[in-house]
Design a protein around this nucleic acid. Sequence first.
RNA 1: GGAGAGUUGGCAGAGUGGUAAUGCAACGGACUCGAAAUCCGUCGAACCGGCUAAUACCGGCGCACGAGUUCGAAUCUCGUACUCUCCUCCA
Length: 426
Amino acid sequence: MLDIKVIRDNPEWAKTKLAARNVKGEEIDDLLAEDVQRRTLIAKTEELKAQRNKVSDEISQKKRNKENADTEIQAMREVGKQIGALDKELAAVQEKMNYTLVRLPNFPADDVPMSLNEDDSREEYKVGTIRQFDFTPKAHFEIGEALGILDFERAAKVAGSRFVYYKGAGARLERAVYNFFLDEHYKEGYEEIIPPYLVNNDSMFGTGQFPKFGQDVYTIMNEEDPLTLIPTAEVPLVNYYRSEIIDAEKLPISVTALTPAFRSEAGSAGRDTRGLIRMHQFNKVEMVKFCKPEDSWNELKKLIHDAGDLLEKLGLPYHVITLASNDASFTSAKTNDLEVWLPAQDRYREISSCSNCTDFQARRAQIRYRDENGKPQYVHTLNGSGLAVGRTVAAILENYQNADGSVTIPDVLVPYMAGQTVITGE
RNA sequence: GGAGAGUUGGCAGAGUGGUAAUGCAACGGACUCGAAAUCCGUCGAACCGGCUAAUACCGGCGCACGAGUUCGAAUCUCGUACUCUCCUCCA
């Protein structure tokens, strides 16, 4: 959530920033008008409340002295009615403001390409060498089905499209990948977490999925206690500290978790319909950081490094891009995607998204620390995939495929595969 | 799933309609070469508004959360969440 005071003090700046995220200037003008209205009403009610408090004191005194206070009580009855009316008006204005405010995206950082077009993302650097094949590389789903390690057809029968069964060496490869990821993060100082996979509405609000993106997730309407299947581990990880004041000495905090992620993929009909790229359920190892505001840009660099390191060790070529302002997630001030090379698609595909959410989530979720003066301040939160597991398996199958249809296991994963070095049809 | 008890400041803990005791901790000062002890004083989360150079000052709000009754609610009423105990169930 944005700070209304920042918008109030820098209206033109705020409009420019948000215009790059498809927010209309009139929306901000309306918001500011409501803000003036709100503060006027607050001033009025508080004046009346101060008066009521003062007279109530007098009434209390008189009662104690067994004096008659009927005049005062009559007068305050009237004041009480006025306060009630003003409070109602105030609540209405606040609700209106809140409706807008919780739906405004984060301000893009200064070094983000300001554009409504996702094609205006900026490539930062490339890592690794793209393999030259002396045969036509197959798509990962063809390889997986031929080897009998991925079964999309039966998944479609049992659950529907965008689901998969991993089998045998496929299942073990998936497990090898995420165990490798978690071990690497452990070595880098991340604390491993196993969080709930179902979360309540307050949590979905805290990380910014609700109220705007309710159609993208699976929610179980359990009477008056709805629970949502997490679309990313970011939700339970960030909300861990919701409504808390964290010890400043503990910062920065880095945590990681392997969880399934559940997404309805509403609106992406027809895209990536085959294979592991876009599933309703997929495993992902997520990294989350909480830090002081002055450290967050440096922590973002570390996050990108920690994600990229995994791809390097797996020998998968990738590049890092900075997303254009309107392509970054709702809560993000700046997002760097890592995109891995997929030979069959002849292009890079997103495998990690690393974002600095600055104080945007912290303000929603009320996550703070005490500064040197003992005053509570919002932390900055960051999240990044490290990495999407299914897409990593897809990248391994495609980049490490052999002409005979077998797949070589990347060296770093061999110990995680009980010594197996190649997946063959048998 | 059933029954009961509870939720007050950083902590402990009083307060059953008149507007949050007290203790510890913390902070400032005195004493001291310094510290401890002692004494004096200050301070009650967070948040919002006004006025500001200001973390100063004034006010609001504030006793788990939300609503209600009342001139006035920590206190009364209703709802919700969470914690603990017992029963039931269970991986």
